[in-house]
């Protein structure tokens, strides 16, 4: 007899596809926020599955800080070409040059806060009424309370104390003029689910996720990729290390881990044995205990 039971990946996939189809049906002008990281790649893959054989009904929006890994950019361009999707790039460089946000100075300078301004400008400029993101609730404390359909006011702000109740799988996308939604179809996935799904579906991901040799700088216990954007402190030196990245953000803030895992199977084995969360080595979350919540209130991803 057939077993009428979906395993956890099948259930998570069915849920995400349902959310993506609701987004296409309920909004006039939705988009996918595509970072080039594994979570947004999985979200995009799910969108491809949700609407096949029709094409993905959302443009891919990339907020380019100008501090991206070159590997991320080339991967993005290949993926867009393969899917026949539309790409929209918001440039943080341009926002800074035009004086709408100040560049941070000093050793720990990052464009992480600056990119929120560019993101909001891009959303407003293209009048996106829903932005699909690869956010997961297991990533961080503040994200644990996100809805699938997360309402943002006309200033793109998230109000965690006044979120709409979200019941069953009925999603309320009604909004006032000028407001928009962030949509998180893979809310319920964990890092392990993402990896298992990438393996199961044979999804291509940037080479940065696999162990490779590169020039690094160790700062406050975090291994950072050495690049022209990183200002060295007097006591710091560049070391050649074998590393891989668990998340892909900016070159300046994304911590690497020392690793020998150069295949998907080895990465999964490593993740299973890992005793530190993946955002634990993101310098942006280390600024304060509620750093993520504070950034989200302002309109961050």
């Amino acid at each position: 007899m057939q077993n009428y039971n979906l395993n956890h990946l099948e259930q998570l996939e069915a849920e995400a596809i349902h959310v993506l189809r609701e987004t296409a049906a309920q909004f006039d002008n939705p988009s996918i926020l595509f970072s080039g990281g594994k979570d947004s790649i999985v979200a995009t893959h799910l969108a491809w599955k949700a609407f096949y054989p029709a094409s993905i009904p959302f443009p891919l929006v990339h907020i380019d800080t100008g501090h991206n890994f070159p590997e991320t950019i080339s991967f993005r361009d290949e993926m867009v070409a393969r899917l026949g999707a539309k790409l929209v790039v918001g440039s943080v460089e341009k926002t800074i040059r035009e004086g709408r946000v100040a560049e941070e100075k000093g050793h720990n300078a990052s464009r992480n806060i600056a990119q929120t301004t560019t993101l909001i400008e891009t959303i407003e400029g293209h009048q996106y009424d829903a932005c699909i993101g690869g956010g997961r609730r297991d990533e961080e404390k503040a994200r644990a309370k996100e809805r699938f359909f997360s309402h943002r006011d006309e200033f793109s702000q998230w109000n965690p104390k006044n979120q709409r109740p979200e019941l069953w799988s009925i999603y309320n996308g009604h909004k006032q003029f000028g407001e928009h939604f962030r949509v998180f179809p893979i809310s319920n996935w964990t890092e392990m689910d993402i990896w298992q799904y990438i393996l199961q579906e044979q999804i291509e991901i940037p080479s940065l996720y696999f162990a490779h040799e590169r020039d690094c700088v160790v700062r406050n216990g975090v291994i950072l990729a050495y690049s022209e954007y990183l200002t060295l402190k007097p006591d710091e030196r560049v070391e050649r290390m074998k590393v891989r990245f668990r998340t892909l953000g900016d070159l300046t803030i994304t911590g690497a881990i020392e690793s020998e895992a150069d295949t998907l199977e080895k990465v999964i084995a490593e993740v299973a044995a890992m005793r530190a969360t993946e955002r634990g080595n993101r310098a942006d979350d280390r600024r304060s205990e509620t750093a993520m919540e504070d950034r989200k209130r302002e309109g961050y991803f």
Binding site: D138, K145, S187, E289, T290
Partner: peptide
């Protein structure tokens, strides 16, 4: 570990649904 948001960390009570994930060899839990 579970009290996430700034307000409730200060008040020491949980004010919104927070989702947590764990797995045993048998099951994955939300």
């Amino acid at each position: 570990l579970t009290d996430g948001l700034r307000d409730e960390r200060e008040q020491g009570i949980t004010i919104d649904v927070a989702y947590r994930y764990f797995a045993t060899p048998k099951r994955k839990f939300i």
